[in-house]
Design a protein around this nucleic acid. Sequence first.
DNA 1: CTATTTACTTGCATTACACAAGTAAATTTA
DNA 2: TAAATTTACTTGTGTAATGCAAGTAAATAG
Lengths: 125, 125
Amino acid sequence: MQVFYIYLFMNRSSCPIASTLDLIGDRWTMVILRDALFKNFTTYGQFQSAPEGISSNILAARLKNLVNNGIFVKKGDEKNKLIIHYTLTNKGRSLRSVILVVGLWGNQNIPNTDDIVAKIEAAKK
Amino acid sequence: MQVFYIYLFMNRSSCPIASTLDLIGDRWTMVILRDALFKNFTTYGQFQSAPEGISSNILAARLKNLVNNGIFVKKGDEKNKLIIHYTLTNKGRSLRSVILVVGLWGNQNIPNTDDIVAKIEAAKK
DNA sequence: CTATTTACTTGCATTACACAAGTAAATTTA
DNA sequence: TAAATTTACTTGTGTAATGCAAGTAAATAG
């Protein structure tokens, strides 16, 4: 007997806000996206090095999810076969505006947070 | 012996994105904020009537959290003492831009979601 | 004065997450 | 070329968050 698996993404409702949160609204996904979008991180090791300290099983699960939902694509490194690059798709890159306003709100409303605009500029170099 | 309780909000890091998500980045908070911001909901019963179906204990916990963090203020109804209004503070209203981009992203990237701009216009009337 | 409404709380099952350790394959080092 | 290290994970176990159903207390409506 052959068994097939279907990846099923179920939204809570037809609301675009709730549906987006079903995709990225957990404790870690947007932190991973921050690193991909603003720090140009691509590897498992890089994502794990974030100061927030995501645990390895959760990171693996989130990356799998983001690949399944077309935010990342998995690519092997050209030189080193051990290294896998999680690179953003166009859909993934379109999340930049979302993560950015979240950061700007934090800057203006949560004391002692790092200046996000300065950090982005620094990361470009 | 007298016991004091201190409400302690601990950020994962000094990152404004991660810190904002510590505050509103769970499964339900932004859904509640959507209803407060775009549907002008204020009462427990209204929030519970959302199509996503938040359970009552979670709703109570989230509302308490949002009050503790200065997003809502609790006010008794003038006429009916049973009714409590959770009204947005200035800080709470400033989250409008955040929830809005989340919704716009959903509109553009998740199929079969309701048009958020149309919904907002409809709610104004 | 009984029924209903409103804003919750309580108890228990399930799911998600945290923490520590382990694994396999590729690569670097001695 | 054998041993150590790197990289991307997985596995196991405990704890915390969430989901679901039911219950409660005070105020109001009929």
